[in-house]
């Protein structure tokens, strides 16, 4: 039996689809990460100038922000409603499989956001501890 070395066209398309989907997940995940970075770095000059005490204030800020990120991830639809409306407006057929795929992606992102929220909390605990 001959085995083609070239991947089939639909396999390539699927791989491309997976890549695009991953890129989108990373983009969504990047926002809270950037926010965490900003929260950690931006107050440093103010703390250095003696305006507030970094290790006293920041744990609270980070824990509150972490919980906010978790709630955001749990309740935000990540553009799913708009996407479905777009499909309906353009007369696309939406099947249960499509809906399940959307739910799955939403659950993934929710998990990521909850994880990132926990990361905020961990950062807060670390700052508090040291």
């Amino acid at each position: 039996m001959e085995v083609s070395e070239e991947p089939a066209e639909d396999e390539m398309a699927q791989a491309r689809n997976l890549r695009l989907s991953r890129e989108a997940i990373f983009t969504y995940a990047a926002y809270p990460l950037l926010l965490l970075g900003a929260l950690l770095v931006l107050p440093l000059p103010f703390s250095y100038l003696g305006i507030f005490h970094y290790s006293t204030v920041m744990p609270d800020v980070l824990v509150i922000s972490g919980i906010s990120v978790m709630f955001f991830g749990a309740f935000y639809d990540f553009g799913a409603k708009g996407y479905v409306m777009e499909l309906i407006d353009n007369h696309f057929r939406i099947t249960e499989i499509d809906m399940n795929h959307i739910y799955k992606q939403q659950v993934k992102l929710m998990g990521i956001y909850i994880g990132l929220g926990l990361l905020y909390v961990v950062c807060g605990v670390i700052i508090f501890a040291f």
Partner: peptide
């Protein structure tokens, strides 16, 4: 023409392997 895969939500939620150009 609209490509439904260009938006972030489109890339995240689309199950279709081909580009969806309206």
């Amino acid at each position: 023409f609209y490509d439904l895969r260009t938006s972030l939500a489109g890339r995240l939620f689309s199950r279709a392997s081909q580009r969806r150009i309206v």
